[in-house]
Design a protein around this nucleic acid. Sequence first.
DNA 1: CGGGAATTTCCAACATATTGGACAGTAAAA
DNA 2: TTTTACTGTCCAATATGTTGGAAATTCCCG
Lengths: 250, 250
Amino acid sequence: MATDYEVPAIRRAHQILETLATKGTPVSAADLGLATGLPKSTLYLLLESLVQRRWIEKRSDGYLIGIGLYTLGASYLRHDALQEAFRHAAVEFVEREKEVLQLAVLDGDEVVYIAREDAPRPVRLVSELGSRLPAHACALGKALLAQLPEAKLQQLLPARLPAITEHTVTDLAQLLEQLREVRRSGVATEQEEVTAGLCCFAAYVGQTPSGKSIAVSTSIPVARLDAQRRSDIRGEIANVAAQMKKAIVG
Amino acid sequence: MATDYEVPAIRRAHQILETLATKGTPVSAADLGLATGLPKSTLYLLLESLVQRRWIEKRSDGYLIGIGLYTLGASYLRHDALQEAFRHAAVEFVEREKEVLQLAVLDGDEVVYIAREDAPRPVRLVSELGSRLPAHACALGKALLAQLPEAKLQQLLPARLPAITEHTVTDLAQLLEQLREVRRSGVATEQEEVTAGLCCFAAYVGQTPSGKSIAVSTSIPVARLDAQRRSDIRGEIANVAAQMKKAIVG
DNA sequence: CGGGAATTTCCAACATATTGGACAGTAAAA
DNA sequence: TTTTACTGTCCAATATGTTGGAAATTCCCG
């Protein structure tokens, strides 16, 4: 920890992979050069190495994230038998409410989705597995942030939070107030702060043995919500979280 | 392609990550040293770099694959809108047969699972997402291998294939004969060649725009199968594959 | 509390990875 | 055909990554 030295090749590789992952579509070597600022010679050497490892794949129209990286990354999901515990806890909820249920982990000031149980008629708008969202904007993030001490929050989040939609909370003080409310009620909410027409409810699950901070949430079109159902959902999401908690702590 | 040179840091990082991914549980720095043969100094430098990138995570009892690698790798799933197409094609089958449906891609002589639609009562024995299986042993693998020219197969596979269970086909000639049959019927089968008590049916889907060779399969406990149902399943799996093919080709 | 083993940090000498730029091949546009 | 733009390859100088070993730190059990 004393040194902030980094193996340069790793940094360079990371730049390339991040560019490819963000883009999602094939990226040409020339564009990668522009995006990363790497010299051509270095770039081709690295690309060749990454292709050999299957971390990336080469197509006629550019480079893509490869199956090797997928395989390695997927190992993350096997920690703590989370998938199994989640599915077990989720099935009943989805059955009854016919709405999607998601599992996510906190990474810094972002939330990463790591499991999902789809409803019979999936909502097109929910986030894909592995995708990230700013924690301050979504219900999951609020549920997770609410577990951190305020001091930590102060250093993690800037005073002015980036907006995603016009409803996103952008004022830190206001967010902190919401988090206090989350702590009181045990359930975090968000309405159209990420996606227009979508409302989310989330509850904190706990820390897994391997140290991940996780929470569950559901995303429901506002059109399918009234006061009564909101209240029901809040209760149920808290239940699911409690059930999962029981399953994952040794 | 002229050079088989590799950026050394990438190779070293790969060794570490592969070790962690294979193990699945925290691995100590000392064990990583043993497993990879890397000098202590090098190892710690690399670990530090990987931790900074979130490719790995450090716990009190060792290192684990990190969320950053998961995020990067998950991008692989977004190619070709495969998840969506798969779910769409799978739902009906699962609904009717109450059995699991899986999607996989061929990587060399291995099959990698990339999507799954679970049955209401999930079979505990099916492979997890991101996991690999030798292609020659499973139905998915046979469906995929059957699409390759024999010359390619000869160079891809050794004459004696490794056995997983006592039923695994270990003789290349015998496998090639099976593959011919797969080409004729359009459906590949495997019974207890991977897991005792489990029988699989698979059908080739096609090449995605980004060049992946994919197939779908179902895994069913032999206890739930009779001659009639086997025949039904074969027809349905072929249907699912055909439906997916329609969806993914531009 | 110690003492001994395991873990982690640090550094300078050395080995080697990186890179600019020249060059070649290819495909589509002029 | 020439032009343009992009994709790769190659090489030698040198900037820089790597490593053995010593030292510091942490951990754990008697």
